[in-house]
Amino acid sequence: MVAIREISRPSASLNAMSTPAGPVLRVPPAVAGVNRDQDMSSHADAINARRMNFYYGENQVLFDVSLTVPERSVTALIGPSGCGKSTFLRTLNRMNDLIEGTRCTGELLVQGQNIMDPSVDVVLLRKHVGMVFQKSTPFPKSIFENVAYGPRVAGEKNRAVLAELVESCLRKAALWEEVRDRLNDSAMALSGGQQQRLCIARTLATNPQIILMDEPASALDPASTARIEDLIGELCSQYTIVIVTHNMQQASRVSHQTAFFFEGRLIEVGPTTRIFTSPAQKKTQDYITGRFG
């Protein structure tokens, strides 16, 4: 077992064994726009989670999770399947409210406001904290109407305003050139990668401050994945991004900060370069070198 892993990931495993304190993974260059060495201490906190516990019925899946996300940065959530990454991500826009019998305790500040407060309007919160899902979910409407959905729901009716907004969001999502001549075609006819960028454009159109992405590229081919990663690099100058990924290389390429989850607990969080070169925890090291999960 170990032998096979050593063959498949020679550099990682060898590094890990020889010098546990030294670099455990060769960290690939970051995508353009992500400066991993940037000092984020001057950035205000976009998200501040304190001692969060989460339950599906009686089943507790998050234990005392505390995590701070600086504004205009990318945070990657990594960890083995079932460790609670998606659950944590979905508490950030109270998406879990939609699931019957869930319960969440702790304190969760988004831009300084406690969003766990019952008086919080989740509809407004979700405009502020957008979300992109693993499976692209275009509505069975035209490309234009998909992007215009959020503004329309928010009450925008002026066609010219909508058209301008749709164009700017499609441009930001690096999709405009591909679809500008067929905005009225069904979004279902786009390729998987295009659909996912459309979903990003659709999220941008609600003018969020924070964008949550749950494995946004895991169903895509390498070329489309690269486009999404580049896009994240472009977007992080304006938006705070939290991304769940199973791809270690991706996490290291696109994020400033990485948080490692294991069995519902946040094991370790820190600057991406440090997490991937000298993790403080043995579990983190085992995970990123591919020893489990």
Partner: peptide, 8 residues
């Protein structure tokens, strides 16, 4: 879910 996430 996608629709709710867009503030519906």
């Amino acid at each position: 879910e996608a629709a709710y996430a867009l503030g519906s």
